[in-house]
Amino acid sequence: MTTTQPPQTEQPAKPPPGRRTRRRPGDLVFENSARLSGVLILVILAAVAVFLLVQALPALSENQGNFLTDTEWAPSGDAPSFGVAALVFGTLLAAVLALVIATPVAVGIALFISHYAPRRLASLLGYVVDLLAAIPSVVYGLWGITWLMPQIGPFFEGLNRYLGFIPIFAGPVASPPRTILTASIVLAVMILPIVTAVAREVFLKTPTMHEEAALALGATRWEMIRMAVLPFGRSGVISAAMLGLGRALGETMAVAMVLSPGLLIDFFLLQAGHHQTIAALIALQFPEASTLQVSALIAAGLVLFAITLVVNMAARYIVSRRKEFTE
């Protein structure tokens, strides 16, 4: 972290004769500015956490319900009662669905760019992917509402007709399909470029000697990818996915525009008015919120903050778990 330097003792050990240990000013300036930046990020993080906590306290102390387990959200009136259970569920559901949809596609695109496409096409595609990553989320939201929603309706009908026996695809299918699945698809498209870009970078870094080892054994290109590229890129793909998950968790506009909100905890992906995400809730309610409501929303924000933290730590854990085999 920030303290890589061992603590300075009062009396520095005597330098060996003929060797100067004087610190050069350039080193000193750089070391301290780097340390300052490192400390700053911690300070900012702590400040955000403290801010959220302080602002959330008034609502939390007025709350008549259980903040963590209740599903209703009514932080107003004489007996304000609100809980984040349904919101946390909706947030995770939307983000995880988006990840499940986006990751395989992203890995496919990244492999195509890194190992299949002719060089020119690969660099063009890479460029396009990077451009897509820069599109603001509200544009994806507009695309979701105006283009995807009309197109996806019949597809959902089909899903329900042929796979309706699976509970998650149970009807009645919402029309217009302002459902969690639509929102997740928009989110998936949104996080696709960033996941693709990171995965591509990792795949490109596969050591040539591992690829050649596979090919020299008589591996086809796909077998080479399975033996050398994917194992090497696995932790990178996980990082990429978590980056995407983080973005999907906090995404506001695309979800707020597409999803018809509800506060239930269920897996009916094709029904509207069942789910809501924390970020979208904050965006939708903040403009007209009373003091107490704002405080409650900030409490929800604090929960989102914690979720993101946990997701990132889980990702780190997954990446480090099999480190022995990846060195």
Binding site: P207, A213, A216, L217, G218, A219, E327
Partner: peptide, 27 residues
């Protein structure tokens, strides 16, 4: 062809994610 004519490289290149056992049977 490469299945019939094997190759050993300049730098040892066992598959880093595989065990010794899996490396041997990789081909």
């Amino acid at each position: 062809v490469r299945g019939q004519i094997g190759m050993v490289f300049q730098r040892p290149n066992p598959f880093p994610t595989m065990s010794i056992y899996d490396n041997v049977i990789a081909g």
